[in-house]
Write a protein that binds this DNA or RNA. Structure first.
Lengths: 122, 122
DNA sequence: CGGTATCCAGGATGATACTG
DNA sequence: CAGTATCATCCTGGATACCG
């Protein structure tokens, strides 16, 4: 999902939000930066081993473009770059928290379901 | 994004949640069903005119598979099908709400930004 | 270290037409 | 109405090579 709000004029709040945070790995990236901040690219990669580097960088760039995160480049050798949530990015904490909470509920729900099925087999 | 939790063994809560609700239009669909329920396919399409029918149906099927929504088929002519959030799907309300709230914040943030840029031009 | 460039493959998404 | 089938396109992922 690409950033689109610059080209469109009308958006509901959910459409606007989803156009920014709906990308494949964006919530995961924001989750990382809520755990620890700032983070270097290599550190984000440790948090998210399933994301390949190219995709990770793409999503980071898009988040940067939308001012969700800030990218700090230190002019040193070897290069050092740090990522950090910006003002509006930090406000995503309730979104990430509610998603994680629901994930917990869903896990319990799945386990209840497993138990039910096992009972049915008796 | 496809449902994956059936094949994988280890998941953080966020990964589990995202594997279920991370699909391109799933949050939007859930948003619809929180506005009004039950809904027929054609009604969801009115809520979400940007989603093509094939994709909408796919995402509905995946959500059904994961027990987030329930699909009721009435054996009438012409066909009548209704969609409704299930027990665990209803618990997604805080997720959708927090996303909408953030969207509002982001919109304000963008407008502040526009004003700043206009001031800079003076 | 933190990228970019390229190629290739597969899956996700979209547009359109068609059907029971 | 609620889909399915088909075809085209875009997004994503993996591997690799290379650079400042």
């Amino acid at each position: 999902m690409e950033t689109q709000y610059k080209e469109k004029t009308f958006f509901t709040s959910k459409d606007l939000a989803l156009s920014v945070i709906g990308g494949r790995w964006k919530i995961a990236i924001i989750w990382c930066l809520l755990q620890q901040s700032p983070l270097r690219l290599s550190e984000i990669q440790k948090y998210l081993p399933d994301v390949n580097q190219r995709m990770l960088i793409r999503q980071l760039r898009e988040l940067e473009e939308d001012k969700i995160i800030t990218r700090y480049v230190y002019p040193v050798v070897p290069p050092k770059v740090e990522y950090e949530l910006g003002e509006i990015g930090l406000l995503l904490e309730p979104v990430v928290t509610s998603i994680c909470d629901w994930g917990d509920n869903f896990r319990e729900y799945l386990e209840k379901d497993v138990n039910k099925n096992q009972l049915n087999k008796i």
